[in-house]
Structures are given as structure tokens and as C-alpha cells.
Design a protein around this nucleic acid. Structure first.
Lengths: 214, 214
DNA sequence: CTGCATCATATCGTATACAATATTTGCATA
DNA sequence: TATGCAAATATTGTATACGATATGATGCAG
């Protein structure tokens, strides 16, 4: 059922799309009970919004919400990157490195959606290295919602942006350089926001089934 | 069903206590379906932990989790208090003031549990004044878990601690003094942690029904 | 008397059935 | 043709029933 989350992260399911309980249940071959549980969970993470007696829809973050998400990230992530740099072991670094490699591989294979998902997951992994489970949970939620924000507000000019910052973070972790890690993360988040077009709230929908089968 | 949350905040339900689905369903006169929904929601907020095929228990934060909660609060709340001080209107101040008065009234009436709950809610209200819905959600969760931490690790010497800090925050808001608000909040959180005894993980349970009837 | 295996009971996990609500469709009327 | 009402349909909300799993008791062997 976590496939739903992945589909959202990979932009195979787009904001505004309705997630009908019967439909999702049929696609995954489970009962509505399970689907309802999952949708509730996603709702709690802000990925879908549930309207009573109307159904669940993939959230369409407003401009204000988009800003809030990145403001929260700016509060949490630099400090978390610092803590990660203090604690990072060679194994941690290797693990993160593999993560980046996977992202590149996905990109090379033309699977931009998977690359985007892995790119977000990288930030969650940092919180894991920092050994901050509570904050990790928050960052997880923020990354999910960031994926929605990107789907809505990304302006496509300047495509390959993240690679550099993530490599720079990796270096800082490898050298256990907290100051640098914090600064890089701070700048990285500023970069991300600067590449958003936080003005219009566009719309678009597709069929659910074909998006999931893809 | 939010009564469950209130009961936890007011320390009428204590960490470790089992929340049997049938039992809760009977107490509230609803079906297990509803109870399960509620328990999953509480689980997501970290108030209860669900063990598969065993049931839901009020969470017993470990020392590490307790530290993490207050570390996260230290990252989020000072900045949020700053933002609140920048935006606070006279209406906001009046609203927060009433909150503090309610807390005092509860304390005077001997309802220490309700006072504790209101004291926590005060922090959530600050996020609301700051107009930061996303961060407000996080703080809400952190406050809830703080309530559990307090139930487990509070050392009773120095009882009336919060009053001063909350009044100081109110003053800072009234004067729209962001620097002061941020500093006071920072110190307030340090105070709170310093009054915890983050060493032993004690245990204790009571019957659910009598706790809710009380 | 103690320890372990087995069985009975209780509790949770999932599916299904029914009720409540929203949405759509069709028709009548202005 | 457009509009408003009403019935029909579809979808979600809730309760209940059944199956799976863990827990505790019981009895037997050592």
C-alpha cells in the first residue's frame, strides 16, 4: 500500500486526483477497509485531503502551504545536517553514496519520477544518520509535501540542480564537517525555493488506473 | 473521541496503559471501527503505540525519545514565538491571555490535569498566532508527547514553573518584541528540560474505565 | 514442585453488509 | 433552451461477522 506514497513521490499520481476507495481497492486487490486505513494515514501526512462523504483527493498545496513547508524545512534540516555530519560513520557515507548513485541511474534510465523520489528520500536518510527519529518523521512528511509542491510549482528551467548540493553534503559528512553541512543544506533549501514559481495554482488530472499501472 | 487525547494530556490516562478496542468502544458507545480509526490517529501522533495482534498502549517515551522531543521543540518553537510576536494583534494577545487565565482557574480549582493540558495548548496557540499551520501541526504532536514525557520524568520539586514564562511570552507578544519572544521561549524550553529527571524509565498502570469516568 | 506442551480464551486484523450522504441524470416547466 | 426539482445512482461512513494471532490456563512429565 506504500506504493501509493511512492506513486505520489514519483509524480505518477498528481495533485487534485481523486482516490476513490473502490477503485484503489480494486487496483491493489484488497478490501476497502485497508484502503481507508492507508488514505487516513496519507491524509495525516498531508499527502491527501479527505472531504467527508466526498472522498480522498491528492492534496493541492496552496502557495501559502508551499511556503510553510519550506520554512519548516529551513528550521529543521540545516541543524539536522549538522548533527548528521557530527555522527556520520564511513558506513553512513557509503549508504548515502549508494543512494545518490541510484538516483543517477534512475535519471540515466529516463525514470525521472524515481529519481525525484530518491532525491527526496536522501533528505530523510540524513535525518536517520543524525539519529533523530522524531525529526526524521517530520522531515519525511515535509519531503512528501514538497513533492506535491514541486509537481505544482516547479519551473522547468534549470533541471539538474540537486546533484551538486547532495554531493557537497556527502563530502561534508565524509569529512565530519558540521559547519559546512549546515551551510550547504541551508543554501540547498534556498536554491530549491528559488526554483519554484510560487504564484499561480494550476490544475490537471489524469485517470488513476493508468497512472498506477505505469 | 478527542476525549481520549484530552485524557492523555490531563494525565488521567498514563503511559503504558492498554487501550483495548472493545473496552474503549464500550465506554464511548461506538463501534470498534471508530475506535480503531482514533487509535491509528493517536498512534500517528506518537501518543499510543500499536503492537500488531496485541493492541494499543499509551506510549512510554524512552529517555532518548524524550530528549528528541525537546530537541525538536528547541528547533521549532523559538522561531515560531518570534514570528508570533511579529504578527500578534491585540485580539491574539487577548485570546492568549484568556488561555492563561483558564489555566490559573483550573489550578485554583484543584484540577491540575486540566491546567497541565491548557499549559501545553498555550504553545500550540502561539503557532496559530504565528500563522504557521504546518509547524503548528508538528508542535501539536510535540506537545502531546511532551505530556507523556512529563508524566514519566517530571520531578515534582519546583511546581509552579510555567506561569512566569508564559506571562513573559505574553508581554513580548503584546509589545511585538520578536527578539524577546524568541529568547524567552528558548529559555522556557531549557527550563522545562532541566526539570525532568531523564534517567530511569518508571512504570505504572491503572484501569481504563475508572480513569475515564473520573 | 517446576517446566514445558497443549488447548481454551480473548483480542486484534480483515472482509463484507447495510445506512447515510453526495452526485448525476432525466424530465417537466418556464 | 435554460432551469429547477426529483428520482436514480454512486460513493463514503459505520457496524457487524468471521478468521488469525497472541495470551493465559491447564495438565502432564520430569
Amino acid at each position: 500500500m506504500t506504493q501509493l506514497t511512492e506513486a505520489v513521490h514519483a509524480h505518477r499520481i498528481l495533485p487534485g486526483m481523486k482516490l476513490s476507495e473502490d477503485e484503489v481497492a480494486e487496483v491493489f486487490g484488497v478490501s476497502r477497509t485497508i484502503v481507508r486505513q492507508a488514505l487516513r494515514a496519507l491524509s495525516h501526512d498531508g499527502l491527501v485531503s479527505i472531504e467527508r462523504n466526498r472522498g480522498a483527493f491528492v492534496s493541492k498545496p496552496s502557495v501559502k502551504e508551499a511556503r510553510e513547508v519550506f520554512e519548516a524545512r529551513a528550521l529543521l534540516e540545516p541543524q539536522t545536517a549538522r548533527a548528521a555530519a557530527e555522527r556520520a560513520t564511513p558506513e553512513d557515507v557509503a549508504h548515502l553514496e549508494r543512494h545518490i548513485e541510484d538516483e543517477h541511474a534512475a535519471l540515466a534510465a529516463g525514470d525521472a519520477g524515481r529519481a525525484l523520489m530518491l532525491s527526496g528520500l536522501f533528505h530523510v536518510e540524513i535525518a536517520r544518520v543524525a539519529d533523530q527519529k522524531t525529526i526524521e518523521t517530520f522531515i519525511q512528511q515535509l519531503i512528501s509535501r514538497s513533492s506535491l509542491v514541486i509537481a505544482l510549482y516547479w519551473q522547468r528551467r534549470s533541471a539538474l540542480c540537486e546533484s551538486h548540493a547532495h554531493h557537497a553534503l556527502l563530502d561534508a559528512f565524509r569529512q565530519n564537517d558540521p559547519d559546512r553541512a549546515e551551510e550547504v543544506m541551508k543554501g540547498h533549501l534556498v536554491d530549491l525555493v528559488s526554483q519554484l514559481n510560487l504564484r499561480e495554482p494550476p490544475t490537471e488530472t489524469r485517470s488513476l488506473k493508468e497512472a498506477l499501472r505505469g
